[in-house]
């Protein structure tokens, strides 16, 4: 799938209009990355709060408490996984934004390539996540259809 061969011997010019739109896209990317970090942290925090609420709602040794603790633990694991996904996605976006803005400010080719590489990795990461999510949706669909 990976093709790192140069497409052409001659560079494609990134003119002022391109620079402006790329800079603007990078700035929005930075906002998105910050929100991604906040969202990821909140999802994990929500998981911890729910875990404490559910797990602490019954006394120790209670049969109901044990089964509720299992449910709460599952909830916590799912929250940490989802939070981790958001934070990982945000790291890729932040790397893209920072490196591209640096490249545009300093005319540094290495930063531009590195920034584009970061967004490429981010897109591949989100593709894998979406495919996994589709598989889960299909499983849920099959589960409901069989009821």
């Amino acid at each position: 799938m990976e093709n790192e061969q140069p497409l052409s011997l001659f560079g494609l010019s990134i003119d002022e209009e391109n620079k402006g739109t790329l800079r603007s896209a990078s700035q929005w990317g930075k906002v998105l990355a910050v929100l991604g970090f906040v969202l990821g942290a909140m999802v994990i925090l929500l998981g911890i709060i729910m875990y404490n609420k559910i797990a602490g709602s019954y006394g120790p040794g209670d049969y109901a408490a044990r089964s509720l603790k299992t449910i709460a633990l599952r909830y916590l694991v799912i929250s940490v996984l989802f939070g981790g996904v958001f934070i990982t996605g945000a790291i890729f976006t932040l790397n893209f934004s920072n490196r591209v803005i640096t490249a545009l400010n300093t005319h540094d080719q290495y930063s531009l390539n590195s920034g584009l590489s970061a967004i490429k990795s981010g897109i591949i990461f989100w593709t894998i996540m979406f495919v996994l999510f589709i598989l889960l949706l299909v499983l849920a669909f099959i589960g409901i259809a069989s009821i």
């Binding site: 093709n3 790192e4 560079g11 080719q109 390539n113 584009l116 593709t127």
Partner: peptide, 26 residues
């Protein structure tokens, strides 16, 4: 003006391919 060299173009090409793929997946 900056130039998108061969490597940058190759990365943009990959971004384009994967973006199209993710759009279809979504």
């Amino acid at each position: 003006e900056m130039q998108a060299d061969g490597l940058a173009q190759s990365r943009l090409n990959s971004i384009s391919k994967w973006s199209k793929f993710i759009a279809i997946v979504v």
